[in-house]
């Protein structure tokens, strides 16, 4: 068995885990973490898959290197946006995902339409 295969598979698992977490979590920072996990999974799949066939390959490594730096700047920008959002509304989730229980929201069907104004 190839040394790189387990990591490629782990990368695939990370993509799936991250995607599921991204859909199911409501807290914005948790979503950001899940998104980053997906990104790391992509990097692993990219490098591992390329190296499985042809040995150590500098091209995907260089691309992933720029990818890591872009990922951290995207994360930082997302954090800026989340903090701004929190500062403005006091919320750490998006209104679309949250039951508007402060209003008269006992009726879930009604809450659903109100929660998604767009």
């Amino acid at each position: 068995m190839n040394t790189f295969l387990p990591y490629t598979l782990a990368g695939g698992a990370l993509v799936i885990l991250g995607l599921t977490g991204f859909i199911l979590h409501r807290h914005l920072i948790r979503r950001l973490l899940a998104f980053n996990l997906t990104g790391s999974g992509c990097f692993l799949v990219m490098t591992g898959l390329a190296q499985q066939g042809q040995g150590v390959d500098a091209v995907p490594q260089a691309l992933v290197l720029t990818g890591i730096v872009v990922a951290v700047s995207a994360t930082a920008l997302a954090l800026v946006l989340i903090r701004r959002w929190y500062h403005l509304t006091g919320l750490t989730g998006l209104p679309e995902d949250i039951e508007p229980e402060l209003q008269q929201g006992d009726n879930p069907a009604e809450g659903k339409t109100q929660g998604a104004p767009h």
Binding site: R26, R83, T92, D97, I98, E99, P108, A109, G111
Partner: peptide, 15 residues
């Protein structure tokens, strides 16, 4: 900086 006074809110139970 996100010392949240309450959790992010109840999830949409119906969904």
């Amino acid at each position: 900086h996100l010392r949240q006074p309450h959790p992010p809110g109840q999830p949409l139970r119906s969904l």
